[in-house]
Design a protein around this nucleic acid. Sequence first.
RNA 1: GGGACAGUGGCGGAAUGGUAUACGCUCGACACUUAAAAUGUCGUCUGGGAAACCGGGUGCGGGUUCGAGUCCCGCCUGUCCCACCA
Length: 968
Amino acid sequence: MEDYQQNPVASSLFVRYDPFTMSYNHQEIEKKWQAKWAANRAGHVDEAASRDNALYYLIMFPYPSGSGLHVGHVESQAAIDILARMERMRGKNVLCPIGYDAFGLPAENYAIKTGVHPAETTKKAIENFHNQMQSLGLSFDWSREISTADPEYYKWTQWLFLLFYKNGLAYRKKSPVNWCEGCHTVLANEQVVAGACERCGTVVVQKELEQWFFHITKYADRLLAGLDSIDWPEKIKSMQRNWIGKSVGAEINFLVMSDEGSGISDQAKDSLKFTPELTELIYSGKKTNTIRLEKKNLQVGDTVRLMTRLSATETHSFAFAKITGVDLIKLNDISLDLKGHERYESREAMLKSYQDFYGATVSLETEFVLYHFANVTPLITVFTTRPDTLFGATYLVLAPEHALVDQIVTDEHRSEIDTYRIAASKKSVLERTELQKEKTGVFTGAYAINPANGEQIPVWIADYVITTYGTGAIMAVPAHDARDFEFAKKYELPIKVVVKPAVLQTLMSETLAVSHGAQSSVEIVSDCFTEQGIAINSAFLDGLSTADAKQKMIAWLEEKHIGNAKTTFRLRDWLVSRQRYWGAPIPIIWCENCGAQPVEEAQLPVELPTDVDFSAIGGSASGGKPTGESPLVDSNTFHNVKCPTCGKAARRESDTMDTFVDSSWYYLRYTDPHNTNAFADKSKIDYWCPVDLYLGGAEHAVMHLLYARFFAYALHDLGYLGFEEPFLKLKNQGLILGPDGDKMSKSKGNVVNPDEMVSEYGADALRLYEMFMGPLEDAKPWDTKGVVGVRRFLDKVHNLCIRVIGGVPRPRDDAHTKLIHKSIKKITSDLEELKFNTAISQLMIVVNEFSSASSINKETFETFLKLLAPLAPHLAEELWEKLGHTTSIFAESWPVFDSTLIVDDVVDMGVQVNGKVRGTISLAPSADEATAKELAFANVNVMKWIDGKEIMKIVYVPGKIFNIVVKE
RNA sequence: GGGACAGUGGCGGAAUGGUAUACGCUCGACACUUAAAAUGUCGUCUGGGAAACCGGGUGCGGGUUCGAGUCCCGCCUGUCCCACCA
């Protein structure tokens, strides 16, 4: 997940540190303690009886790239290690694991270039990462190291896929999807950035393909609401809110004018409900349709409302029709290719489909009513966030791909419409969403009726309306929407003002007021008003505020069955299919008879085949098969299987899963990484989860972090988790930039190699420097001179210790005791708040103080060492041992400050005259105002400023400030 | 176009509304050394002054307050995110 590029050869940027006499031998010390920690399994944890002391500290696991660990990895690893070590010293049972997000494109693309199998390069890279992390002295629980590319891991990724599949959370559908020509695979919406592939930058095109999706939109509302309960950076939360994109408004049905004219809706006697597929068939058929449905008291001549079933409880109207015939007919007697009806391959397939719709009790003998109807008058359903402006809707616009277009277009406009639709389908996502692009569109020849005022309004198609958002159709209110305004001006469509600003104060508002004052409400105005205001020209809404008008309009729409309140989300379902090799195979078998069949649990994992010749795949720089299939189809061993249901020859699903599926549940696996019976034991999940602190880059705001939350919600609902939110607290570490202030990259040659830093200055110095650079969340440029600086500090600590050991025993120095207790307080709270830089500066202050003292008390120094230990663990252990201890410093308790010792007897305090500091006095922080006043007024510098002036007021904040306000 | 965050010395940065620039780097002087490195000590926002001290100073302009880097309003600049989402 954390993927960094780096160049090991950039030595010219580094300042060589000369290890001379006053310097300790970091290489020897660090090797020694790393070996000891490995031997006692320092970071190893087990569940305890009580959950009270359990903490789960997690960093986003790295993608094991061939170029090795990056200084950016070190930052989050050091941070989490410091916190884990401190909390262990405070008696906590801390789970702090590490693993590898090992599937992904780079290894596969490398394989295509070189022929080396991704499993091999990945294995090597993981070994390298492991060794590099060991050399940093990180106290992970190494017994829990996992790799998502390990069959023991992806077995459970596949198992979870099937769990989702069986519970309706994983499904297959044909829809326009994002296709990357560079990577030769489909992409999730989240992986398309500004119309281009997030990974390779190639312009993404839309393709109509059948793919696997996860039903994340089912959780849109809860994923949005859940954000309020978690301690995450506001920035990330707002990005997720944006991405989910909740819009509250209404759906409004516009009746398309039929040959017979309008008014049919009022006569609807009852409603007939259809599946979405049948809805589509009614539209794509001609004007006469036949269809069967549940029994209703309907007769020839009745007008009925046709509705789509969106779910068990949700429906929406799509048309009106007149019944021309009613027959009773057994399912067995319905022809398989009944006109206006779904076509079935076999009687069994028909029965199954009916059972899915009407329940298992349906048999071939069940009698159904077959209705014939004519004069299907379609409704165009639009979604709007401004139902209050319905009176100002002067035309409708459909997306070019809208299902109704074919049906409503008049013959004289058909060729023009077809040309436009074909042109739109050829455009890339980028072209269609390009900024400041001039809007284009074509009139369909059809008219709809504005239900508010009965006016006939033209229906257009235009590619500024997106098929995948809302209903793929809009009511255009050019006077109050910038896009509609631009379009209306270009095509000379009417513009009708229906909202005026609440306060007329801007020039624009005046323009509107003038246009409103004119006789005709339909005229060209110079600008549009998109803000909220007061309704005008809107009959029963006139005079209402936008908010009130919305409410009243929705109530009116619902009462008249014309529309309803509706909330829409921008979030799309998560497309998880990838036409690539190096990922977890989707555990599905395709059978000609039985359709998609899940692989039986006992057959998991579906392992990746080894007989794939990567060098033969080639074809493009970044690999992938240009055919739109995964390289897995080339494997004989993999591709041809038997159907688990009927036993006939079948084909294995050849797509793999998006690697974000792997990383959506890895934190659960850490709690029980070797379990062969479940993805993790529930009791272990319950003990450790949810994660108390999660550290990682902000680039995952709407990808990994949203997907992982979805997984947690889904698994919670399925009974596997006792919580919904997986990560209670999230912190983002900032980017570490090159010494030139630019993002580190191979091409710029400004990459810093952590290995060189470790060998030159030591792991302790590297860790400490990265923590000292600045606030964890900020982007900061690298400066190797700074590493030298913290190394100097560590040498001072070392030399100080030599003095403590060699010196004669000394009584405690009161000043030192006070300093160390203040430092315990500050460092503890700083570390708790992840303010490593200020914690370290406090340690430096202590060392500077001790270094200039003639003697240091051993016990005081030992307290200091304990505070240093999480930050510079190797040196702290070494010095602790040198001081005569035989057990680890990490077995010690974290120091606790004595609150009576952190109060100063005397402090220097500023004295202000009219807010400007004019002098300084020394006094006890507990001194009363009279004492302070006496001292302040006796101060020579202060006296100069108050001499002869009238004193208006005195503000005394003990220990902080003494301010004298005088009349000037 | 919309949103989020930020702007403090030569540099990284510090500061519950209370002595702005802690800590580190850099640079300079001195000590140690034949010398250099390393180490140590002192200095290092700016103008004036030998100094004490005085004036100015946290992107710009206002405001609240005894007191503002910090809070409020308006702007400028930068970074990131979203972007024809109805």
